[in-house]
Design a protein around this nucleic acid. Structure first.
Lengths: 138, 138
DNA sequence: ATTTTTGCAAATGATTTGCATTCAT
DNA sequence: ATGAATGCAAATCATTTGCAAAAAT
């Protein structure tokens, strides 16, 4: 990949307060260059295509780190695998339970009205909306 | 438990087209007598309190069956465990990421506006809303 | 008799962990 | 040197599966 992207990603990590390492940079390129929905395993494969000496544990560590720094979101959509989402704009999801395909629904299109008032000792983390659909029987 | 409840639960299963067995009846009592949010393991424990000769596999089988018959919903809220919800009214959820506590939010209180139009070959399964909150640090 | 349901134990698969090594400061 | 980051393999844990025994029709 071009040096340009590498620089941009490194910059992005530093901004987030994440020390740059080779593996983190590569994971950033896979995840942060454009909005994607990927499982840990897909990310591992993609990263290993370029940096084969990358361990599964590092991918999990890094994704957890990225999540803490709000570079990615963890989507709990399928009981079998977590999906990491690099779209950081407020948005919701449409999920095809047959194919597993995930599509973003922007917060402009969809509104959630009536989120309950929270007591002062409870803070709102986020509101997830998952529109589960089923493509017709194959 | 009183015979009354047993009868009611048996009736409920038959209505759903589920042949009644001892284990299913017991699981129905745990789940369907009142709205609850329980993990498979919690259900297994509760059932074994009364019918100790109950296997984990049967609990999973039965829950899957109940789900197909729309007696319970599967909530994908925590990556580590599926929660089974016996509230069959349309409703949403508030989830405390610290405690794991789940609270229902009725569909009267909360509305989702702008669910995208679906092509005719795609049918809407359901719309999940999870309001993730964080109780102040303990 | 045949089909359904169950229990048990083993298999699976995603994620985590412990620990020794390597890297950065 | 010291602490952070990594790789590796083993551990964990929820869920699933294969199969034989028990129950229902």
């Amino acid at each position: 990949m071009d040096r340009l992207t590498t620089r941009a990603m490194a910059e992005r990590l530093r901004e987030a307060g994440i020390p740059v390492t080779l593996q983190r940079l590569e994971i950033a390129r896979v995840m942060l260059q454009q909005p994607v929905h990927l499982s840990a395993d897909q990310i591992l494969s993609a990263v290993r295509a370029t940096v084969p000496e990358t361990s599964r544990a590092t991918v999990y560590n890094t994704l957890k780190l990225f999540r803490e720094k709000k570079l990615v979101r963890e989507l709990i959509v399928d009981p079998d695998r977590v999906v990491f989402d690099s779209n950081t704009d407020p948005h919701y999801h449409l999920y095809d339970v047959n194919t597993g395909e995930l599509t973003d629904v922007s917060a402009d299109e969809l509104r959630v009205i009536g989120v309950p008032q929270l007591p002062p000792d409870i803070e709102l983390e986020e509101v997830d909306v998952i529109i589960r659909v089923r493509g017709k029987r194959t």
